[in-house]
Amino acid sequence: MKRKTLLAAELSWTEFEEYMRHDDVLIIPVGMLEEHGQHNPLGTDTYIAGHCAALIGERAGALVAPVFPYGYGPEGKKFPGQVSLSPQLLRKILYAYGACYAKHGARRFLFVNGHGGNAGVLRMVTGDLWYDYHALCASTEWWLLVPQIKPELPCNDHGGFYETSCMLAIKPELVDMNRAQDPVPDTILSEHIRAGYTVTYQGEPFFATIDDYRLGRAGNLGAPPQGANERIGADVLEAYIDYNAGLIGELRKIELQNKGN
């Protein structure tokens, strides 16, 4: 007998059709293939997004689409193995991904985003799906959300302490802590501007694209990876998963009108 599953790829088309008759929620994880230090795999963002999406789906009783493993990340193009799509192409692909499901009943989407460079594109995609299909879309990122829920977990790194801890909780066999290196020290660009994990003026972050100052040979930023551990990673992931499961419950309560009304 076929086991019960909430993974869309494991359903037949008739099972998917039947599921959409009683629930119109779909979770879409989006990742990236890029450097995360010499100790983490290129697929770090994809593994974290896919893992979280599957557990959110279990907890919320919602279908989970296959993870999309590519994103937008030109800052790491000097690192072998990195794959970066243009933001225009990524927007078209993710829109088409959602639209295919929207045409067959999905009306509420949760994008579980594993990569910072995807955030701006996903915000546009959520608007595209709303205006074209009246589909209610949410998009969340663990590194921004968790510090708001648990200030003791700042998640202030790329391939550093917190992201490495998440990987140790998910796929420890892919992490080689013997190769972990300290991040590049913050670069002092002017009297009050520093470039590190974030770019800051008088200690407060602002956006600027100056990655030549931020990325060294190691490829990780922010909190050093040394000391990363599975327990911290599990705490980070649990906070994120629990929040998103609750968010889906609230999204289900919103009454959606038919498009054109």
Rank of each mutant, 00 (worst) to 15 (best):
W130D: 08
M32G: 11
L122R: 00
R214G: 02
A135M: 06
Y133V: 10
I188L: 14
Q226R: 12
L110M: 07
H158M: 02
A62H: 03
P69H: 09
A180F: 11
P225M: 13
L221S: 01
A245T: 03
G73S: 10
Y201Q: 09
E10G: 11
T140M: 12
R3E: 15
E163W: 07
G227F: 15
H51K: 12
L7D: 09
A96T: 15
T5I: 10
H51T: 14
A245Y: 05
R194M: 14
H39S: 02
A180R: 01
Q38M: 15
H104C: 11
A9S: 12
D23C: 12
G57K: 01
C100P: 00
I56D: 02
E141G: 14
Y101P: 01
L94D: 11
R123G: 15
I48N: 09
V199N: 07
S139H: 06
G76T: 14
P172H: 07
R194P: 07
V175Q: 06
V67G: 04
C100M: 14
G71Q: 01
L55N: 11
D186V: 05
L221Q: 02
F207H: 14
R107K: 11
R252F: 10
E230Y: 09
L145E: 14
N220Y: 05
A180D: 01
V30P: 00
Y19L: 03
A245R: 05
M124E: 11
G105W: 00
L174H: 12
R59A: 14
Y97R: 01
V64K: 02
L33D: 00
P69E: 11
N156V: 13
Y101A: 15
E10F: 08
Y213M: 10
F207C: 15
N40K: 06
L6R: 04
D23K: 05
I210H: 09
L215N: 02
A169D: 03
H158E: 05
A53M: 05
D186Y: 13
V121Q: 01
